[in-house]
Nucleic acid binder design. Structure first.
Length: 489
RNA sequence: GGCCAUGUGGCGGAAUGGUUACGCGCCGGUCUGCAAAACCGUUUAUUCGGGUUCGAUUCCCGACGUGGCCUCCA
């Protein structure tokens, strides 16, 4: 089996060859922890979790290192800290914000079925030189200055983009174009408009570290250069993130890392996931369609319902990771139904000891998760439930409890009364208690036996009114008619 | 303005230089007193205009549509 991955740098799909098969190394840009992560943030987390699982399968669990950073130094964090904890000293307030948000993030992505990365370093721990000698930001900046790739101006340290001949290779931008665009902010102290900040000064109120350039804080890009080198070395295998990070973030990471270390490449494969829209529109707070992972999991804000984490995971994986996704209630409903079917069939099934080959083959083709899911449908159709279970486990669909907790929407769309209840947001709690419902069901069975169908249907309609859906069947053993019920939400 | 993606049936979404997967829905059938559920089956598509080719949804050019980046937003 040959793993092939699309590389943004070369813009083609290539066979993946690790630098060291004994230690395959991947870095993915993680969250900036100032607020709840939104559903767009979940996409790279899920996509690269699947890749992580695949790499572990191919090279062995102990031979893959996956680093996902946590950005806990950022001006947005400072703003949030001042707003939420006005009474506290800033640094203390910042820690409260970042710890709370980071914990929430970990809980969110766990619910999405993601394995924890090998390491999750926090940026604040890599600002100053470390006792353990791992790469840090200040040292990296010093190296850049020493090699002539950075300069001080007005208290800032800036990266000199003109000192790097092939700056812009990842995004396909040339320095000349950036000038022609005329949208690039021109700062008098910059040698070139695209030069970017490595270190900036902090006011006494702002968080800061004592550095050779005074008390200040790092620029955005340098943290990833430091933490990737700290855990993965100066050149590693895969670097991932969202499409929007290509420029400037990843471009600048490349500039910093390569120029500081004198290497030809920072990573050998650059992978970027596509964006998502919500119900056909760009997700934004002003449009009111901004939705966080936590809201989907724990509230009824989106589509009037809570959604199990695995439903969100499947909704993310049914589309190829580089394509755009339109995030819709309808899609989540569909995914719920699919998972309901799968889990219903594999509930008490032991997984096969090996992952079905077709699943691995599809995933090895640049993470073709859409074809992979089609393969799972095929397994179910052929009633290969052990293989289905194994494939589901491999993709991170392991629990099912929260999926099976509620019948999916597809099953209720043909029940007019129940649907009306849903759309009117009527209370879903039954007006009758359990015993009364059972009594009514028993009465209806009696009526059916007596072929009094008018009475039988009347009771069925009555129960439907309060959201109880009846299904008639035969007892598989005795052949006796039986009735089961479900709550239409 | 510059750069980068993208356009497949009612919907979602793969693949491919030559019969267009898969899922959801719709419709039909089995079952059922009738429904629902379940199971089985059917139907429908490659944005437009050129070019290359025996043959283009696929490759090339152009148009149009959509989205992203160029503003420390995945």
């Amino acid at each position: 089996m040959e793993l092939r991955l699309y590389d943004t740098m070369t813009r083609d799909k290539r066979v993946f060859t690790p630098i060291d098969a004994g230690n395959v190394r991947m870095y993915v840009c993680g969250p900036t922890v100032y607020d709840f992560a939104h559903i767009g943030n979940a996409r790279p987390v899920i996509v690269f979790d699947v890749l992580f699982r695949l790499l572990r399968h191919i090279y062995g669990d102990q031979h893959v290192t996956y680093v996902r950073n946590i950005t806990d130094v950022d001006d947005k964090i400072n703003d949030r800290a001042l707003r939420d904890y006005p009474g506290l000293p800033l640094n203390e307030a910042i820690r409260k914000v970042t710890e709370k948000t980071a914990d929430q993030f970990q809980a969110d992505v766990k619910a999405l079925g993601c394995l924890p990365p090998t390491v999750q370093p926090r940026a604040t721990e890599f600002v100053l030189p470390r006792p353990d000698g791992k790469t840090d930001m200040v040292t990296l900046i010093q190296q850049l200055i020493a090699r002539g790739h950075a300069y001080e101006a007005e208290g800032e340290v800036l990266f000199d983009t003109q000192s790097m001949p092939d700056y812009g290779a990842l995004s396909g931008r040339k320095l000349e174009d950036q000038q022609a665009g005329a949208r690039v902010a021109v700062d008098a102290h910059k040698k070139h408009p695209t030069d970017f900040v490595l270190w900036k000064q902090s006011s006494p109120e702002e968080p800061g570290w004592d550095s050779p350039w005074g008390r200040g804080r790092p620029g955005w890009h340098i943290e990833c250069s430091a933490m990737s080198a700290a855990y993965l070395g100066t050149t590693f295998d895969i670097h991932g993130g969202g499409l929007d990070l290509i420029f400037p973030h990843h471009e600048n990471e490349i500039a910093q890392s390569r120029c500081a270390h004198g290497t030809h490449a920072m990573a050998n494969y650059w992978m970027h996931n596509g964006f998502l829209q919500v119900e056909g529109e760009k997700m934004s707070k002003s449009l009111g369609n901004f939705v966080t992972i936590n809201e989907l999991l724990a509230t009824e804000k989106f589509g009037g319902d809570k959604w199990a984490g695995e439903i969100l995971r499947l909704a993310m994986l049914r589309t190829h990771y580089r394509s755009p996704i339109d995030w819709t209630v309808k899609a989540l409903d569909e995914c719920h139904k699919v998972l309901w079917d799968w889990y219903t069939d594999v509930q008490d099934v032991e997984p096969s000891p090996t992952v079905p080959a077709e699943v691995l083959n599809f995933l090895s083709d640049d993470l073709n998760t859409a074809n992979t899911i089609a393969a799972l449908h095929g397994l179910r159709k052929r009633k290969s439930f052990s293989d289905l279970r194994a494939a589901m486990n491999f993709l991170g669909f392991t629990d099912g409890g929260s999926v099976l907790a509620r019948r999916p929407a597809g099953a209720r769309t043909n029940v007019p009364t129940a649907t009306a209840k849903v759309s009117s947001n009527a209370p879903t709690v039954s007006a009758l208690d359990d015993e009364q419902i059972e009594t009514l069901i028993a009465l209806r069975l009696e009526a059916r036996k007596a072929r009094n169908f008018a009475e039988s249907d009347r009771i069925r309609d009555q129960l439907l009114e309060i959201g109880v859906v009846l299904k008639d069947g035969k007892d598989p053993q005795t052949g006796e008619p039986i009735t089961t019920r479900e709550i239409a939400r």
